[in-house]
């Protein structure tokens, strides 16, 4: 039997009132792939993420993760199914420490019951300690351990993005969705980010879906790219094909670019 896809989105349509944000979107991620989702502002990329992670219930279509249909599931159940994400506008728990942020991600594997936690039973204490240790190891692996006790909101912007990734990884996902991780970064930071993403993917054995505007990042690391414009999928394929695709160029630069380029 064929191994089910890590993530598979079929015929996804999302309408808000009269506005169709995404129409008939299709996407399949095989295990270990790194796929880019690009498109101009307002193309519906983040909406795809929101539907996949359960923030919105799709108008039509289905989402399944590792063969399980998760369409319309609550976000926390989707997360338990192995899908984690970061946010375009960083959403850390700002007044909590970096370690606590990561613990919140790690928490879904907590087995001890609430009374055990209040009574501090030996079982709970052991679990809490191993949880803290694992989270510190994770922070260490991502080079963030020196911030462990600092409030997350006080960190530099780039570091906050990495903490978000750490928090997502703490849930031990199979699929990681990254929403514009390079936003606001300069070219050398973006380069470092590319390496970071690739390292994380191989170290944590992940499948990655990436929304990004920075073409150097997308073209540099993605194996496949899907392009959205006004909610429609206008192209899908390998980076080189996408770069040459006329519809993609028009979507980004407007019709008539061809003429300019010809001069």
């Amino acid at each position: 039997m064929k191994e089910p896809k890590e993530l598979s989105v079929r015929g996804l349509t999302m309408r808000f009132g009269g506005l169709t944000a995404v129409r008939d979107f299709e996407l399949e991620l095989a295990r270990g792939e790194l796929v880019g989702l690009i498109g101009p502002n307002g193309a519906g990329k983040t909406t795809v993420f929101n539907v996949v992670t359960g923030v919105y219930r799709p108008t039509a279509g289905s989402v399944s993760a590792a063969g399980v249909d998760i369409t319309g599931w609550r976000p926390d159940r989707v997360c338990r199914q192995g899908i984690a994400r970061t946010f375009q506008n960083i959403r850390l728990m700002k007044s909590l420490s970096v370690l606590d942020n990561v613990i919140v991600g790690h928490r879904l594997r907590l087995k001890s019951s609430l009374p055990a936690a209040i009574l501090r039973t030996p079982g709970y204490v052991k679990e809490e300690q191993s949880m803290a240790r694992e989270c510190l190891e994770l922070l260490d692996a991502l080079g963030l351990v020196r911030y462990a006790n600092a409030p997350a909101g006080g960190l530099p912007y780039g570091e906050q993005r990495r903490v978000e990734v750490a928090r997502a990884l703490a849930t031990r996902p199979r699929v990681l969705l990254l929403d514009e991780p390079a936003a606001g970064m300069n070219p050398s930071e973006s380069m470092a980010l590319c390496q970071f993403i690739q390292r994380v993917r191989s170290d944590f054995d992940l499948t990655v879906l990436l929304i990004e505007h920075d073409m150097s990042v997308v073209m540099g690391i993605c194996e496949r790219i899907t392009v959205l414009d006004h909610g429609e999928t206008i192209a899908s394929g390998e980076p080189a094909d996408i770069q040459a695709n006329q519809r993609v160029i028009e979507a980004y630069l407007g019709v008539g670019f061809k003429n300019v380029a010809a001069h």
């Binding site: 926390d76 997360c79 613990i103 991600g105 928490r107 907590l110």
Partner: peptide, 23 residues
């Protein structure tokens, strides 16, 4: 406790907490 961390997470950002697996 770890449960308390989740309560704080809900206070700080309900949506993000839920997406991180907090019910």
């Amino acid at each position: 406790s770890v449960y308390g961390r989740s309560l704080l997470a809900v206070r700080e950002d309900e949506v993000a907490a839920e997406i991180m697996g907090v019910n």
